[in-house]
Simulated scan of single mutants.
Amino acid sequence: MTSLTINPEDVRASAGARPAWLEQVAAYVQRAAADGEAVTLTAKRRMMTPEQVADAMGVSRPTISRKIKAGEIRAVKVGNRNRIPYEEFERYWRKTMGDLVELTRDELRDDLFGEQ
């Protein structure tokens, strides 16, 4: 049987009495049971490559590599490759977006409400 991956944002965004991700888990376990298989649930830290982070942020991979080298983004070595924990990506994304909002706040206000 194949594996099933449930992402944290799916669980956090779930609504209703029985969310869709839970339905997926139930169906997976039922199929395994019907095939006489045991099911083991595990959790693993989600990691991203510098290229995945770059794509998500709309920048180049070398930019992300420079941010890692400068200590702005925390990465771990897996072999000789950098991997960025997903929660580190989220932290950096929030910081970057907060900085962008701060830099453009006055201009946005002027655009929306006229110069004050």
Rank of each mutant, 00 (worst) to 15 (best):
T2D: 14
V101E: 06
R45N: 09
I6T: 13
R94Q: 14
R12E: 14
R31F: 02
E90M: 08
P62D: 04
A33C: 05
D111K: 04
D99R: 12
Q24G: 08
G79L: 12
A34D: 02
P19F: 07
D35E: 04
K77L: 14
G114I: 11
R81S: 01
T63I: 11
T63G: 03
S60F: 11
D111I: 09
L108K: 07
L108T: 00
E23W: 08
A17L: 15
V29R: 04
D10G: 06
N80P: 08
T42P: 04
T5M: 10
A13S: 15
P8G: 07
L112D: 08
V39S: 02
Q116P: 13
R94H: 14
T5G: 08
A34Q: 01
E9Y: 15
R46D: 10
E9Q: 12
V29H: 00
G98N: 03
K95M: 06
L112F: 13
V39R: 07
D106A: 00
Y86D: 09
T104P: 10
D111H: 05
R46N: 13
V76L: 15
D111Q: 01
E51N: 06
Q30M: 06
V29D: 00
R94A: 08
G79N: 13
S60V: 12
A17W: 10
V53N: 00
A75M: 08
G36A: 04
Q52E: 10
P85Q: 07
K67I: 07
V59T: 05
V78N: 10
N82I: 08
G98M: 13
R18W: 06
A33F: 02
R105D: 01
W93L: 09
M57Y: 05
M48V: 07
L100E: 03
L41C: 00
F89P: 02
T42C: 04
T40C: 06
L22V: 04
Y28M: 04
M97E: 11
T63K: 15
E51H: 12
M57V: 04
A38G: 03
K67Q: 15
A26G: 03
R12K: 13
A17N: 11
T2H: 11
F113G: 11
T96D: 00
E9D: 10
E72A: 12
L108G: 08
L22W: 02
Y86K: 03
D111E: 12
A32I: 01
R109K: 12
K67P: 01
R12G: 08
R45I: 05
K69Q: 14
V29P: 02
E102P: 01
R61M: 11
R94P: 05
G16E: 07
D99P: 05
V53Y: 04
E107G: 11
Y28Q: 01
Y92I: 02
G79K: 10
I64M: 14
V101L: 06
W93D: 14
A34F: 00
A54M: 04
E115D: 13
V76K: 14
L100W: 04
T49M: 11
E90T: 01
R109V: 15
T63D: 09
M1K: 00
R91K: 03
M48I: 03
A70T: 13
A75C: 14
K95T: 07
V29G: 05
D10M: 15
T96N: 01
I73L: 12
L4Q: 03
R45D: 11
T40A: 08
L22F: 13
